[in-house]
Design a protein around this nucleic acid. Structure first.
Lengths: 191, 191
DNA sequence: GTCTTATCTTGTCACTGACAAGATGCCACG
DNA sequence: CGTGGCATCTTGTCAGTGACAAGATAAGAC
């Protein structure tokens, strides 16, 4: 961040600055309302500077997706091994890192086959599967239970982000999703 | 290009033609890769003709969202009142009308407050709620069960559309989601 | 001290969304 | 008839965009 007064030819950390500006812009208004040129202006560099680091717009979104899956895997891992905690962490991540989440699950926006994306995505997938294994399977295949859990957490997160859920749920997605996920842990029978 | 045979000054059904071209384009490659001008070219009219019918791009997407919620409500209503049938219809609709579905739940793309959108969306919501009422509540609030069901169906649909689900599930989303939804109907205990 | 390389700038092109103004044809009403 | 109103569509234009090419600048290796 040398910048401020005497602006040097080299930005110093342009890649990081562009990434953060993109995440901020996506969080504010989605993946389509900003431009590479606007990000360049925010960072105080010329309109073509971002291209050196990301190639094109898809390259920038690929970097965001990779970073997102890394953060996602870390967040899920920290949540522990219990399904309920992992599920709540899933939704918490989606809301806290809205921009990353939106890009991650919109693979037409980026290069889903990029190795850094695939690696982080697989890591997150394994942690998710581990969480689902703590669910009661009740006779059905474990894969079915796992899919049910994943779908529920993911669906709640997407509905929350899209503003489709009723306002009475309040403003804390983690608190709102917990009883919903408990339906799978036996909530149908006790609490 | 008023072209080929005797093309009159007026298209005849431009609004419909633009809508269908947009839906087709979105289904092929998402909501960002096409342009109003390209749709105009496909319909054989000048680049500014679509503006008369939709105002701007958001206006076109608003029309698609409204049409989508109408279709959605119709599809759900036809499925009957049972939760499992409604849930399967939910996913089937998302895949069969992928373009509409993607726009509907991305409200930053259009005017969610438009009356024709709100009306159709409310109608669909009521049919969904009716379906959820056939679920066993098992002591928890009906709203919680309903949220769980909605989240699961929606999440499965989103994951399916984004290509995140494993390939072993095959290519029939309705067949794939049924056992997953049955987890909520007591599948944990019998089936 | 020169060479190499990564980083950033300048310049350009076709394309886009949005707007303004004008052309065209349909239809109601005389 | 015919004429005026109106919805529909065209033409022209503007700033902004993504992508690319070529050149300028710094920072480090040798």
């Amino acid at each position: 961040m040398r910048t401020i007064s005497t602006r040097s030819y080299h930005h110093g950390n342009l890649r990081r600055a562009i990434l953060e500006a993109a995440v901020e812009a996506i969080g504010e208004s989605g993946t389509a309302t900003w431009s590479l040129r606007e990000l360049a202006r925010r960072a105080g560099v010329s309109h073509a500077a971002p291209a050196h680091h990301f190639g094109d717009k898809a390259g920038l979104l690929t970097a965001i997706a990779a970073e997102g899956f890394e953060l996602f895997a870390d967040t899920l891992a920290e949540a522990g091994a219990d399904f309920l905690d992992v599920g709540v962490a899933y939704v918490r991540f989606a809301v806290a890192h809205r921009a990353h989440f939106e890009v991650m699950f919109r693979p037409e926006l980026y290069d889903r086959a990029a190795p850094e994306v695939a690696a982080a995505r697989d890591r997150a997938g394994q942690i998710l599967a581990r969480g689902a294994r703590t669910l009661p399977t009740g006779g059905v295949q474990g894969r079915t239970t796992s899919l049910a859990a994943w779908s529920m957490a993911h669906g709640f997160a997407e509905l929350w982000l899209s503003g489709a859920l009723p306002a009475e749920l309040g403003d804390d997605p983690a608190a709102a999703v917990r009883p919903v996920l408990q339906v799978l842990t036996g909530g149908l029978h006790d609490k």
